[in-house]
Design a protein around this nucleic acid. Structure first.
Lengths: 335, 335
DNA sequence: AGCTATATTGCATTCGAAGTCATTATTGCG
DNA sequence: CGCAATAATGACTTCGAATGCAATATAGCT
């Protein structure tokens, strides 16, 4: 049956005794074909192992049906789940994911070329390094972009993000139950927008709450940086009452370091909170109090916004902020 | 400059006062174009914001430059790293990743249609559920497939896999140092080839080593199943001396369950080993003794094999088995 | 039956780059 | 300078499906 040469719509048409147009129409939904022709064509197509060539279709329809997803290599731990969701939800809308991995800032120019070249319908960026000039480039070429897990106030960009303000407030309220004397804020890297946002929100909320003794350290979101930062801090300072980490991975590092190298009891001697709600934050040994990102909903929103802009290129930029869920773990002392 | 209409090679040709062929040649490497023409075309192209249309190129060259990567949703925890490596290494060979997510067995037929449709150059499957009849379908259509992390002895398939035999032997040798009286083997799901392979290898090696008291339980590779299986076991049996888990995630679950709910000291009362060498297996609280998969090398091998078969469709199936590294953690009692 | 309204169908063209082939320009060399 | 060898160029065709349009078939109705 299926031999090694590719079967085209012309081949099927010839075999079925109809025109190529007829074959084409059978394989597009909602077009006017008689039942008789449809059956005949379908039978022949199946027999010959015909599959429409998506490439040719893309060329004529000018719709690639592909969405570029940019993932930076220094990616958030929950991006795999995000990616899986994106793929699944796009598939449901009959679109595919073309994956681009970004090695930090380098290669962004080349990436833009690549993406243009592939005529993708849109872009979802899970990458922190995405300067506004790059955004403008896509804009110019009428390629809609949605920034996932970003919140760029005032920028003309489509963004989808978890509600950091509300989430961090909930976390601080948990911590405040113990009236901590001093806080340590463990921020993500300075060149990450999200890290900066989370840090600044934490700082301004702490001020609101009247916290007086607040220090800041900068990690890189990794487990090891959580450990290293805490170790460095404890060399010259007493144990903080509360540590606010910009993500769960660092929180886990902080907890391990505290317990293993400094004999600090978490949560009794020191409370720790994280952010994201990654799987391992719930593991028995950590039970991090954190904010779980509503990944599925965030992805749903991203895709809705993206497709809206694909279909309607002139729709205005949209930002959606979704609320995460407080996970009450066991890393905050109970009063 | 870059207006909203797509710029084609004809537009550039007209502006630059050359033929479309000339423009095309400038953008293909190694073709005969005079320096003068090249400069002129490049300048015009840049000015107009021209990018070659990859879709049109694919159609005529019959090479999509895309590789389908199939990831099953019930994916191994280190697949994100694999995926990132695949994307990066393929990019270096000027190929792109078209991502397909598989919801367990359902949808495999549809998936095949999709993949055919997109004229991908090849397929890398990170999915456990990939029956040989599906493989044959791809075969028939001359689409090369590489199975990652699979080892199908005797099958006419390209496979790349970590050396389970050797790795598990190393792990058992670690455990044997304490002369354990009884073993518990915590296998992955029965419908996973890799799980079955790891289990059978463990069992036959244990027999070789003369272990007499060996029991088997089946989990689903998840943290929770590690916990549940151990809990269930301990209801009716004494604490095993050694637990061999088919992956790190379950090992971590076992360790947490032992410590928190049964006051078992790991490693002194019970030794645990895992497999994979995922990031969290090295965290202070677990320090799982395990075999670290050589992900980068495995991916490199996969891509080499795949591209070899893309360029040379008649090359024979190839299986490559790479050696993982024993990570001596702290989950095995030291004699 | 007659005639209009509607449903099907096929022809020819289109999408944008690549490649074939014949033609023209350039170079090298005796 | 002349001739062959080589390089550079452009006209034209190709890839495979989609679609506007005109032609034909069918259905509906009086």
């Amino acid at each position: 049956m299926a031999n090694n040469k590719k079967v085209t719509s012309y081949d099927v048409a010839r075999e079925a005794g109809v025109s190529q147009s007829a074959v084409s129409r059978v394989f597009r939904p909602g077009l006017s074909v008689s039942q008789k022709t449809r059956d005949k064509v379908m039978a022949t197509a199946n027999r010959m192992g015909y599959r429409p060539n998506a490439i040719a279709r893309m060329l004529i329809t000018k719709q690639s049906g592909m969405v570029a997803v940019i993932v930076s290599s220094r990616a958030n731990v929950n991006y795999p789940e995000v990616l899986s969701q994106v793929s699944k939800q796009l598939a449901a809308r009959n679109k595919r994911v073309l994956l681009f991995t970004l090695d930090d800032a380098e290669g962004l120019d080349d990436l833009f070329e690549q993406i243009c070249t592939f005529q993708v319908d849109g872009v979802i960026a899970l990458a922190a390094h995405f300067e506004s000039d790059k955004l403008a480039q896509f804009e110019e070429h009428n390629i809609p972009v949605v920034l996932y897990n970003r919140n760029v106030p005032g920028a003309m960009a489509n963004t989808v993000c978890c509600n950091h303000e509300l989430g961090i407030k909930q976390l601080i309220m948990e911590l405040e139950k113990n009236n901590p004397k001093n806080y340590l804020v463990l921020s993500g890297p300075k060149d990450s927008d999200v890290a900066n946002e989370r840090r600044e929100i934490a700082l301004s909320l702490l001020k609101e709450f009247g916290a007086e003794n607040v220090s800041i350290l900068y990690g890189d979101y990794s487990y090891q940086s959580g450990r290293d930062c805490l170790a460095k801090w404890l060399k010259k300072h007493p144990t903080p009452d509360a540590v606010i980490c910009s993500n769960d991975t660092m929180a886990i590092g902080v907890i391990d370091q505290a317990r293993e190298s400094h004999s600090i009891n978490v949560p009794n001697d020191m409370s720790v909170v994280g952010f994201d709600g990654i799987t391992s934050s719930a593991w028995q040994s950590y039970q991090v109090t954190t904010i779980k990102q509503p990944v599925e909903k965030l992805v749903k929103a991203s895709i809705e916004i993206l497709l809206e802009h694909v279909e309607n290129p002139d729709s205005p930029p949209e930002s959606r902020v979704l609320t995460g869920a407080l996970i009450e773990g066991n890393s905050v002392k109970r009063p």
